[in-house]
Design a protein around this nucleic acid. Sequence first.
DNA 1: TAAAAGCCTTGACAAAAATCAATGCGTCTC
DNA 2: GAGACGCATTGATTTTTGTCAAGGCTTTTA
Lengths: 193, 193
Amino acid sequence: MYEVFFQKFNEKVQLTAEEQDFVKQYLTPKKLRKKQYLLQEGDICKHLCLVEKGALKAYVLNETGEEHITAFALEGWTIGDLSSFIKQEPATLNIDALEDCELVLLSKPAHDELLQKIPKYETYFRILMTDAYMALQKRTAYMISLPLEERYKALTDMYPTLVQRVPQHMIASYMGLSPETLSRVRSRITNRK
Amino acid sequence: MYEVFFQKFNEKVQLTAEEQDFVKQYLTPKKLRKKQYLLQEGDICKHLCLVEKGALKAYVLNETGEEHITAFALEGWTIGDLSSFIKQEPATLNIDALEDCELVLLSKPAHDELLQKIPKYETYFRILMTDAYMALQKRTAYMISLPLEERYKALTDMYPTLVQRVPQHMIASYMGLSPETLSRVRSRITNRK
DNA sequence: TAAAAGCCTTGACAAAAATCAATGCGTCTC
DNA sequence: GAGACGCATTGATTTTTGTCAAGGCTTTTA
């Protein structure tokens, strides 16, 4: 249990067996069926969530009820409404399961206590945030500076599994495009080689 | 000296006078004239940089040499090519001064040593990354889900000083728009009330 | 296994944004 | 004080993207 969680943790900061057992006390497993919500807009995000198995999406709804996907999470990725989690304020994100999921949850009190008690947890979380921020900076730079074809290619290069596994209209939403436009971008790419 | 740096630091983690003196050893002041580079694409980002005074912009250049601004920094903000800094790899960002600047620099060795020696520095940096990541997530959600008018309004609400202080074509670049389009967005906003 | 639902693609058209060009205005510089 | 430069605006036009509608294919479900 919690294999993926500790694998990811140990990639960043190596824990001893005892430390690992100690951290385990703070974790909660959770299963989610496809289409079930992990978090709904307006609720407070009570947990950060690491994906042991399955896939989820995070999205905002605009006035007209359109869904705009802001993030995906596959095995080993962490997801949640970070702002809502840190500040314990109502969430602006919705998060639901794209497939049946096995998750590891960490509550806000558990997070705060681990930050206090285990310096390695703070290191882990510092690196997690730094990596996440760097990845999002890269995405932002691509969004602003690359033409659509390049943006799509960059995405498939960076996350080939994601693009295989998730319906294309969701990739389109994530890129801020209509499904039709992404379909045309893809046909332009394949026809030009 | 370093007033703004320690003000920002103490907002996140309170340092004693002794701790503050200790951290000071690792800092370097630097002045930059308007239009001078802090960092050029291809170089390794040797320092993180906090702005004591002045303003800078970070941007990528695409194949056709167009500038796409990815970030600004005003007083109290931290800037740098984080990926290049952390991994000590060639930078993809260019950073230059929009005004004459007074900066505080922190080198990579200094950063690493402070992480080791001063737990409060790790806490500071963890919070810095978390806040930066949350802000960028917000920006990304806006980019994908809000119509142009709303996006511009959100930007002026969030960073009124920035919009005042920086030429509008740079704001347009930051938003991923042509200067003409931003000008029209603005005239639509003012004419409709 | 038949019907329904979800997904992707394509075409025709409408809307939005980029581009090109011209103008005006202020500021800096010599 | 004149010219050059940078900046914002506006108009005309082109290009890009979104929207609407239809069709075919696959998967899910009853």
